[in-house]
């Protein structure tokens, strides 16, 4: 019996089967992204995201400063000068600043 077992070799696998299996596994794996094979794209993507975050932050900050300036201007209007006040409230409305308590109360 030994002569038989020791001298037979295992059957060969169909060529191409390994590629098919690995391709299907690749398709199925969670979190697989087209960027996985292009790390430089991932780096650029991170940089762009960071740049946008900075821009948004600066924009919010600028808006806040602008709003404060408008409030100051509003306060600077003489109490009887309705025209001055209405003009500033008009600008504030156009620029979406009516959530500010000072403009909200007056609008």
């Amino acid at each position: 019996m030994d002569k038989y077992f020791k001298n037979t070799k295992l059957k060969e696998l169909r060529p191409g089967l390994k590629k098919e299996i690995l391709a299907n596994i690749r398709k199925e794996l969670p979190g697989q992204s087209i960027f996985d094979n292009f790390s430089f794209v991932r780096i650029y993507w991170s940089l762009i995201t960071a740049a946008f975050a900075v821009l948004i932050f600066v924009n919010i900050h600028t808006n806040k400063s602008h709003e404060n300036l408008m409030v100051t201007q509003y306060s600077a209007c003489a109490s009887a000068d309705t025209e001055c006040k209405m003009e500033i409230i008009g600008i504030a409305r156009a620029q979406g600043m009516l959530s500010n308590p000072i403009f909200k109360a007056k609008s």
Partner: peptide, 28 residues
Amino acid sequence: MNKTKDVIGDIEKMYDLYAKPIFYYLLT
């Protein structure tokens, strides 16, 4: 490190080592 690449790499190693005997077992 890329996890997906690691998994594929390990499975490929497993395939190279064991696919043939397992295939023969399945044929049996």
